[in-house]
Amino acid sequence: MNVAAAHPGFLSPTGVEIVFVLVGVATLAAAVVSVTTKQLVHAALWLVVALGGVAVEYLLLTAEFIAWVQVLIYVGSVVVLVLFGLMLTKAPIGRSPDADSGNRIAALAVAVAAAGTLVWVVVDAFRSTWIDVDGAPQGSTKVTGEILFRHWVLPFEALSVLLLAALVGAIVLSRKQSRQQPGER
């Protein structure tokens, strides 16, 4: 372990790295299925897997608070919202042949090109950079709480206002129109 830390290399991965890669592959696979499956509800469920995988990666990067927030917000509420949305828009249950638009080929080309470019650039830039994950956890709840309420209070409060505005906006938008003014629509 010490030797590996002193001279780390791709061919001698640590345990954390192995776990990271395995979870990463699972996450990626879930994401790919999520964007390609023809069953809309399944896509939402696969998204849960992918987001959960990301949460595990956060844990592995010692950012535990973020990981739990990820689970709470994304897996807990966002996906539930999405499922609600699917149901409210009467999304078909089961395989729907027209889940993908005619733009698929172009989308694939752009996505592959973007992936290639990004991976190339990232690998080229960080080929020999290592994260020290053995020290004090970078994102423990205590640390995050202190830093959030000491240095980031103002943006935090601003975001609370933003959330309130979003709440009001969502209510206004999704409210059914009253019967008194049917001519408006």
Partner: peptide, 9 residues
């Protein structure tokens, strides 16, 4: 989607 495809490309 076409617009964004072109934009991203």
């Amino acid at each position: 989607q076409t617009y964004i495809s072109v934009l991203l490309a």
